[in-house]
Design a protein around this nucleic acid. Structure first.
Ligand SMILES: [Mn+2]
Ligand SMILES: [Mn+2]
Ligand SMILES: [Mn+2]
Ligand SMILES: [Mn+2]
Lengths: 219, 219
DNA sequence: CTAAGATGTTAGAATAATCTAACAAAATAT
DNA sequence: ATATTTTGTTAGATTATTCTAACATCTTAG
């Protein structure tokens, strides 16, 4: 049995993993707002459960079992977010905090029903893919808007690090998934972008914003 | 802040309270499947939070604050049950176990939305009243079917101690809230009742069943 | 009214999850 | 290459929730 606390560690490990699947104790500590010694002792515990590979002073890595369990928690989280947004009428900026709690419900029937009522969605309200029942995740590689060039037209496909504040910022400008953005110019001194979309007046987006908007070029 | 564990104790205290609002340590211990010494120490803790009146060897009683907090947990439980049944398609025998977990979500917006989507229901799927936002509960005094007499026609209005098994038993016989039952005869040796309803063949219900069906006589 | 039995409390310990302080190792910057 | 900073671990303590064993009180059946 995996406790609520352990589920949160697994989820964070999965989300922080770099290309090589590695996470540092310090990063995990910051992500969870839990002190490093606590993280170290939890890692030893998860290693005992064969969910994490742990060696002193080495980066942390989820085992295959750990990846699967983490994906299943992420599945519950994203299905919940989608249900809150699509079936209950919450905004995409509201769903994360509630899903953070509901994701820990232990009832396969509950999440199966949500999945069914939603018509087996592939993506959550932030454009993130929903892992399947075996924990398999179909990762699509989007581009950051900040990596695109002047003159290109792109489609907003996902948002990263979806703080409520960032999503409200996008709401205020009516930027959502599917919005087609044309890049008018890029200020070289701060990498901010002047863009146009939806027949609205031109907007300037800071580099911080452009980095968090994931887009597709082939629209 | 009231923890998940404390919420469960409060709920059990509220549900077990007799006419005088009293609960014994032993009953509470059995209800929660937690040993008596643990219950005693938790009662001291809740007394410290002014949620329970506690005196050694005396029956336990919720304070007014305790009653309100307990009612608010029960509100979350019953709204969840109703949502699971009405909006998600779960059977009344399935909703309790899931609601037992979802009731601990801390988000007023979540339960307000559920309430709104349901159209502000007054009763849960088992006929139990849903407390209002202030924890006020409109208790209706129903009769047990077992207290009714031969020849009477009554309407099933609620079920008590809603174990999944009992509810499946009722499902098998198509007895639900609203079913109009006519009492054909009562066996004096075991108090079982022969009843008819919905143009179905006569059924015999044991005393144990009749005690758990709450009915209204004025249909 | 007393002896059992049931109920309730105290004491001491365990587990899970967290912390601070101190120390150790690794990475970085002169 | 050494000193400094950052990162990670160990040790020891704390809080929340639970348990068993032993003892105390209350209730009930002769
Ligand atoms: Mn969580
Ligand atoms: Mn999301
Ligand atoms: Mn509960
Ligand atoms: Mn109910």
């Amino acid at each position: 049995m995996i406790s609520l606390t352990e589920e949160n560690y697994l989820k964070a490990l999965f989300n922080l993993a770099n290309h090589a699947g590695e996470v540092n104790v310090n990063e995990l500590s910051k992500q969870l707002d839990i002190k490093m010694p606590t993280v170290t002792s939890m890692m030893k515990k998860l290693a005992g459960k064969k969910l994490v590979y742990y060696e002193s002073y080495k980066p942390l890595r989820l085992t295959e079992k750990g990846k699967r369990e983490a994906s299943l928690v992420i599945r519950k989280h994203r299905l919940t977010e989608m249900f809150l947004a699509e079936k209950m009428g919450f905004g995409w900026e509201e769903v994360h905090d509630i899903a953070e709690q509901v994701e820990h419900v232990q009832s396969a029937a509950f999440f199966d029903k949500i999945n069914e009522l939603l018509g087996f969605p592939k993506l959550d309200p932030h454009g993130a893919p929903i892992p399947d029942k075996n924990g398999k995740l179909a990762w699509v590689a989007y581009d950051k808007l900040s990596d695109c060039h002047v003159g290109e037209t792109v489609r907003v496909s996902a948002v990263v690090h979806t703080s409520s504040e960032f999503l409200k910022f996008l709401n205020n400008r009516e930027i959502k998934l599917g919005t087609r953005i044309k890049i008018k110019s890029i200020e070289s001194f701060d990498s901010s972008m002047v863009i146009s979309y939806d027949n609205r007046p031109a907007e300037t987006l800071s580099h911080a914003v452009c980095e968090r908007l994931l887009v597709e070029k082939k629209v």
